[in-house]
Amino acid sequence: HNGKLCKLKGIAPLQLGKCNITGWLLGNPECDSLLPARSWSYIVETPNSENGACYPGDLIDYEELREQLSSVSSLERFEIFPKESSWPNHTFNGVTVSCSHRGKSSFYRNLLWLTKKGDSYPKLTNSYVNNKGKEVLVLWGVHHPSSSDEQQSLYSNGNAYVSVASSNYNRRFTPEIAARPKVRDQHGRMNYYWTLLEPGDTIIFEATGNLIAPWYAFALSRGFESGIITSNASMHECNTKCQTPQGAINSNLPFQNIHPVTIGECPKYVRSTKLRMVTGLRNIPSIQYRGLFGAIAGFIEGGWTGMIDGWYGYHHQNEQGSGYAADQKSTQNAINGITNKVNSVIEKMNTQFTAVGKEFNNLEKRMENLNKKVDDGFLDIWTYNAELLVLLENERTLDFHDLNVKNLYEKVKSQLKNNAKEIGNGCFEFYHKCDNECMESVRNGTYDYPKYSEESKLNREKIDGVKLESMGVYQILAIYSTVASSLVLLVSLGAISFWMCSNGSLQCRICI
Rank of each mutant, 00 (worst) to 15 (best):
S231V: 11
M235K: 03
H236P: 00
E237H: 06
C238D: 08
Q243D: 08
L253W: 00
P254C: 07
Q256M: 10
N257F: 06
N257G: 01
P260T: 02
I263P: 05
I263K: 06
E265K: 12
C266P: 02
C266Q: 09
P267R: 01
V270M: 02
V270P: 06
V270N: 10
R271T: 12
K274C: 04
V278W: 07
T279L: 13
R282A: 03
I284N: 12
S286R: 14
I287F: 09
Q288N: 12
R290C: 02
G291V: 09
G294V: 06
A295T: 04
F299C: 04
E301H: 01
G306S: 11
D309G: 05
D309N: 13
G310H: 03
Y314N: 11
Y314C: 10
Q320Y: 14
G321D: 08
Y324Q: 05
D327Q: 07
Q328S: 02
N333A: 10
N333V: 10
I335Q: 06
I338M: 11
T339Q: 14
N343I: 04
V345L: 12
I346T: 02
K348R: 13
M349N: 12
T351I: 09
F353G: 11
T354N: 15
T354V: 14
K365M: 06
D375F: 10
D376Q: 15
W382Q: 06
E387T: 07
V390M: 12
V390Q: 12
L391T: 12
L391R: 04
N394W: 07
E395P: 06
E395T: 15
R396G: 08
F400Y: 12
N404L: 10
N407R: 11
K411N: 11
Q415T: 07
Q415E: 06
K417H: 10
K417W: 03
N418A: 07
A420G: 12
K421H: 12
E429K: 11
F430A: 00
Y431C: 08
K433M: 08
D435Y: 13
E437N: 15
T446K: 08
T446A: 09
Y447S: 04
Y449D: 04
Y452H: 11
N459G: 11
N459V: 10
E461S: 12
I463P: 01
D464H: 12
D464A: 08
M471T: 12
G472N: 02
G472D: 13
Y474C: 08
Y474G: 11
Y474K: 01
Y480R: 03
T482D: 05
V488E: 02
L490W: 05
F498D: 00
C501T: 11
